Simulated assay, not measured.
Amino acid sequence: MSDNPGSGSGAHPDEPRGRRLTLGDIAERLGISTATVSLALRDSPLVAKTTRDKVKDMARQVGYIYNRSAASLRTSRTQIVGVAVHDIMNPYFAEIFSTLEDELERQGQMVFICNHRDNVERQRVFIDTLLQHRADGLILCASVGTRAEEINRLTDQGIPVTLICRDLDGARAPTVRGDDEKGAFLVTQHLIRQGHRRIAMAGGRRETSTGRDRNAGWRRALETAGIDPASQLDIPELMSQTDGQSVVPRLLAAPERPSAVMCFNDMVALGMMPALRWAGVEPGPGMAVTGYDDVDGAAARTPSLTTVASHPDRIGSMAASLMLRQVGGEDVPATRHLIEPDVKIRDSSPPPGVRHGRRLGA
């Protein structure tokens, strides 16, 4: 079977008009094997970059178009990996995707991405499309509403799956995510050590492991300090900068106004800080604010944002490694891999009423 469905108008002048071009044509002209040409056109790291470039240049000259479908029939591999997350606009997921793409492309894999927006039907359509294209595997931050059986049906068919950022109880697939409970505990503990006793939590979808775990870490830190979480303001479901802006009036109108807010993620925090300023409350000294994820730019805001670094580059790199091992035929256990968080203490979380190291009015 030829890898090329037909020749293009850019065929080499030595080729008879209308003749189908093959891998062998390119191989003969370059004096290399057909297998090397095939690997080069798939960007295989087994072939030196200089050779890959020569093969691609010759393919362009003769109008050869690589037929991925035909190749997949021979190898049972399409070199396609699907990646689905709920918010590609969040810089945190953008960084995960960037790392995944770099790692997978180095091994000749092409990445298809889906922004499912926590719409499980949208996610299912994407997965069905991947199956129709006989993709090599799926890396998934599971939508709200995803059932473990859906993942297990894939893995039972031998389709490699790696879960990222969110757990899915009962799913027989490896998971890579941050230790969200520990990170939330540590950043809330920081606020308590700064002297705050009224610490709200803003955000997080509690139907997800991420939302539940960060809320659990906030609660554990309060309870450890002898503070009743039930006495604190706890506002779920906020996820975006717009959400952070919109919740400020509720925070300021609370009978027991919080002196600090632990936000579910940096997006909520970065939306909240200018809205506080517009309302006449200086973020930091007027109300301490912390985020989660340490996205690009968090340190450059005014005030710089105290947050939890959950290392999306490490999550992306490990997820790519687990996927490639599965695609290569290795039986990878359905283990949870937790990435250790780090608290980045900055200017947005001073003690109550303190600005630039001095208490207001002092």
Rank of each mutant, 00 (worst) to 15 (best):
A71D: 13
R212S: 15
T78K: 08
G18R: 10
A48S: 12
A84Y: 01
R166I: 00
Q123S: 10
P350Y: 04
D14K: 00
R197Q: 15
P160C: 03
Q232T: 04
L131D: 02
M287G: 03
L305P: 01
P350I: 07
A260Y: 01
A94V: 04
C263T: 05
A299I: 08
R359L: 11
R106A: 15
D313L: 14
S304R: 01
A202L: 13
P16T: 05
P258Y: 04
S38L: 12
G178P: 10
M287D: 01
T51F: 07
S33H: 09
V261W: 05
D25C: 08
T36S: 15
P91W: 11
G297N: 05
S69A: 15
G8S: 14
Q123V: 03
W278Y: 06
E149P: 08
T208N: 08
G203F: 10
D347F: 00
D234C: 14
E15Y: 06
I199D: 02
T224L: 09
S143R: 09
L360M: 07
G145I: 08
Q157S: 12
P5D: 09
G244D: 00
P352G: 02
L251K: 03
Q189E: 15
I164S: 01
K344C: 07
M1P: 06
V120E: 06
Q232P: 02
D228S: 02
R359V: 13
A309E: 12
R205F: 12
L130G: 09
D294Y: 07
A216Y: 03
A216C: 06
E223Q: 10
G6D: 09
I127P: 01
V281H: 10
G280V: 07
D243T: 00
T129F: 02
A269C: 07
V261E: 08
T224I: 02
M287T: 01
V81P: 02
R60W: 04
H86P: 03
L322S: 07
P174H: 10
I96D: 03
P341D: 06
P258Q: 10
D43K: 09
